[in-house]
């Protein structure tokens, strides 16, 4: 039983964390919203007049905005497709009895721990470089024209790199979920004559549904903010071929010093992320009651 005194002590113990997070949320957030209504460029000193929705209008009507939205969608969607399907297959495979399971699992998970700038640069140079990369060497060896990944299929290349980083995450989560499946249920189904496919479709997949949703939501939150991989490989190019929303906002705020425009973009990014966050929070909240 919690007494009144222990309640007060508990409140005191929680307050530093709450105050810090409150400050971290409210101060920069309200500044972003405030800046987004100002004409404010660091290259043009002077007063920063209030301009209403002008920044939003410019940001949204700029052709690079629609390009960035499409790229963001393709990047997030492409990586999700690859990692979720690949993750399910990997999890099913790793769940089977085999020798050296521990070592195999460790090798599959390893890419998740590679920092984004390293994986971006390693794939760009050691693999996708048309002259010196492994793919280039292999293409030449069999007499084919090497693909220049970052000029011919730039967005697809980045989707590939990011998928390599996130496939281990999906695999690990789905494998964990799969291992909590009741084996007797599967055996009973097998004895009743259910084939492998129907066991997968009617027992495993429903059991995994929740974990799959969690993987999709959490990855979406992180994938919306992909930045380092683009910075070290293509700088958003060629043109705007690999510019996502995060990168576009980075360009307008830190490269063009347009604080007002960058902030307007920031507000849009926050709204987008929140749409996903609402669903994720609901799922996590439900679990908290259990």
């Amino acid at each position: 039983m919690a007494t009144k005194a222990s309640r007060a002590a508990a409140r005191l113990m929680i307050s530093p964390a709450v105050l810090l997070l409150l400050g971290w949320m409210i101060v920069p957030l309200s500044m972003t919203v405030y800046f987004s209504f100002l004409r404010y460029n660091l290259l043009m000193p002077g007063d920063n007049p209030f301009v209403g929705w002008e920044n939003y209008k410019w940001f949204v009507t700029d052709p690079s905005f629609s390009a960035a939205m499409v790229n963001t969608l393709l990047l997030v969607g492409g990586v999700l497709l690859i990692t979720v399907i690949g993750g399910i297959l990997f999890a099913l495979l790793l769940d089977q009895p085999m020798w050296g399971q521990g070592v195999i699992r460790i090798m599959v998970i390893a890419p998740f721990f590679v920092m984004p700038t390293v994986s971006g640069l390693v794939w760009k140079n050691m693999f996708m470089n048309p002259v010196n990369g492994i793919f280039g060497h292999l293409a030449q060896a069999i007499g084919m024209q090497p693909i220049d990944f970052f000029s011919q299929i730039p967005l697809l290349s980045i989707i590939g790199i990011v998928s390599w980083q996130w496939l281990p995450f999906a695999t690990l989560i789905l494998l964990t979920a799969l291992q909590s499946l009741d084996q007797e249920q599967l055996e009973a189904a097998e004895m009743d004559g259910a084939g492998w496919l129907s066991r997968f479709w009617f027992i495993m997949l429903p059991h995994l549904a929740r974990a799959i949703t969690v993987v999709i939501l959490i990855q979406t939150i992180f994938l919306l903010s992909i930045f380092a991989e683009i910075l070290v490989t293509t700088n958003g190019g060629p043109g705007t071929a690999t510019t996502n929303l995060t990168y576009l906002i980075y360009v307008s705020s830190l490269l063009q010093y347009d604080v007002g425009m960058g902030s307007a973009g920031g507000v849009i990014a926050i709204i987008l992320a929140n749409i996903v966050a609402i669903f994720l929070m609901r799922m996590i909240g439900k679990n908290l009651d259990a």
Partner: peptide, 16 residues
């Protein structure tokens, strides 16, 4: 507390 984690970093890049 968890919801603060959902804030995309680029949304507060400028003020920070």
């Amino acid at each position: 507390m968890l919801s603060t984690k959902m804030l995309p970093p680029v949304g507060v890049l400028v003020p920070i």
